[in-house]
Design a protein around this nucleic acid. Structure first.
Lengths: 115, 115
DNA sequence: CCACTGTGTCAGTTTGTGATTATATAAGTC
DNA sequence: GACTTATATAATCACAAACTGACACAGTGG
């Protein structure tokens, strides 16, 4: 499953958002998601599975609890894919800053259409 | 349809990639995509429609030709969503740069799990 | 006007994904 | 050991998405 497919689901995006400020147990995630989306516990668990199996989260057991946390790599991959499009809005870049932070090369796009 | 759903399809991602270096006619896109993915002309046309209807592309008519080009906004939206996760890998940031370019506030995430 | 090219739309079929209910497993508690 | 809590898995079902083939329609050139 491609990273973008994983992020295509609003529940999964929300779960990742919840994890931005640190570890969270499956239970606390489930509770929140249930209240926000009205889906069942197994439903949430399956989304957690997708995130897990695609490397978006790391899990750590603590008793019966499973503590989930964000794993950066796949998100970073998405970020890298987007990179090629930054030129479309970064134009009036506070140059130095962006250029240093990201390693871009591409300038403003130009026309090109084969016959 | 959410931006991530649009990007969930590999054909649509590829089309956007093709458009990074400028306008392209539906025909030239179709030809390329057909050779790469082996799908029919209507198939490609439908993907173009999704991109169009979701604001990922602009279209301009030139005779019978339709010239497609990238429209930044939706991609930018995705970029903004990702922003909150940059802290997970940007740590060793060439500080100044990133901080100036993006308007981040969040630091390194910390633990937090409600009972 | 006719035929041809370029492109979009429609109808119908297939497939994959997300949801549900029921159940399994594993860890604590009494 | 029986019971409860925490979480995952299994089986199944429903629906949205993607593909195809047939067709429509606008421009263009003879």
């Amino acid at each position: 499953m491609h990273a973008f497919d994983v992020l295509g689901d609003p529940v999964r995006r929300r779960i990742l958002e919840l994890l931005t400020d640190g570890e969270r147990s499956a239970g606390s995630i489930t509770e929140l998601i249930r209240s926000e989306f009205g889906i069942s516990q197994p439903g949430v668990s399956q989304h957690l599975r997708v995130l897990r199996e695609n490397g978006f989260t790391a899990v750590r057991a603590e008793g019966t609890r499973r503590l989930y946390s964000v794993e950066a790599e796949p998100l970073r991959e998405v970020d890298r894919w987007l990179e090629r499009f930054r030129g479309f809005w970064d134009q009036r870049l506070d140059a130095l800053g962006t250029e240093l932070a990201r390693g871009r090369r591409r300038g403003t796009p130009t026309r090109k259409d084969p016959p």
